[in-house]
């Protein structure tokens, strides 16, 4: 055996030296770098002890203009009750009904009169757990810092105007990927910030953009976890969440 030949002792010694060098370099790097947080994103998240949600929405309709792939929504789909001029058969969705478990999640985006895809709380949760969806908070920074959907990126409407615009462009390119879903939300109900930000993102070549209709109000009312404090750096993984024991969170008790 190599390790036990005449030079085996020096081989192990050298291996120890290599590890020592690496640990030393790591320690030095750590000392010279900004301290990193040992708290996982979404720390303080209280996950309700319920059956994990397995239903997922892999993709969103492209463009948000009602021209996405057509599919018939499940009959019992807990869609958002929202005034729409579109007949039900025009509901663009490629949402897959749950197959892996009987979880009462059947997310079905609808399109509102403005041509934007609106998501129910159930759909938002399913997309959140898909981990291929980015959440964008369209509220102002103070509201964002007070409590938000875990891993959300702050992009208030005001960030697209005036002297913030250039920095916002940079931030969008740093934080968001155009090949993934983007779900924009604001306070919930009748707030328009999410729709405005969604339009701004669509204008910047984001093709899979949807609006979470019930927003933060619906999210918290459904007992879903939130996080607070400073915004996290880009590209961080997040943990899946489980909906509350009551199962369906559609509507989420939103308060317009």
């Amino acid at each position: 055996m190599v390790c036990c030949s005449s030079s085996g002792g020096s081989t192990w010694l050298r291996a120890a030296v290599l590890v020592g060098m690496a640990l030393g370099a790591g320690g030095l790097h750590m000392a010279l770098s900004d301290p990193i947080s040992t708290e996982l994103k979404g720390s303080g998240v209280v996950v309700p002890p319920t059956t994990p949600t397995t239903a997922k929405l892999p993709t969103l309709p492209g463009g948000g203009d009602g021209t996405g792939p057509k599919a018939t929504a499940p009959e019992a789909a807990p869609v958002v009750t929202r005034p729409t001029t579109e007949p039900a058969t025009n509901t663009p969705t490629n949402a897959k009904p749950p197959t892996a478990s009987p979880a009462p999640i059947a997310p079905a985006p609808v399109v509102d009169a403005g041509g934007q895809t609106m998501l129910s709380t159930d759909a938002a949760v399913a997309l959140f757990n898909d981990l291929q969806t980015q959440f964008v908070d369209a509220r102002e920074p103070d509201e964002f810092g007070a409590g938000r959907i875990p891993s959300a990126v702050s992009l208030p409407v005001s960030a697209f105007n005036g002297q913030n615009a250039e920095a916002t462009e940079i931030k969008i390119n740093m934080y968001l990927r155009r090949d993934l879903n983007v779900v924009v939300y604001c306070g919930g109900g009748q707030c328009d910030a999410s729709k405005l930000v969604a339009k701004n993102l669509q204008a910047r070549a984001f093709s899979k953009v949807a609006v979470y209709h019930d927003g933060m109000t619906g999210w918290t009312a459904a007992g879903l976890p939130t996080e607070s404090g400073p915004e996290n750096p880009p590209g961080l993984p997040r943990m899946p969440i489980t909906p509350p024991a009551s199962g369906g969170t559609s509507g989420g008790g939103s308060k317009p």
Binding site: M21, L23, A25, G27, T38
Partner: peptide, 17 residues
Amino acid sequence: PNLMAFLAFAVPWVELI
């Protein structure tokens, strides 16, 4: 947490070296 933070720096250096 401190050990994990250290590993976050050290593991890439192990690979690199």
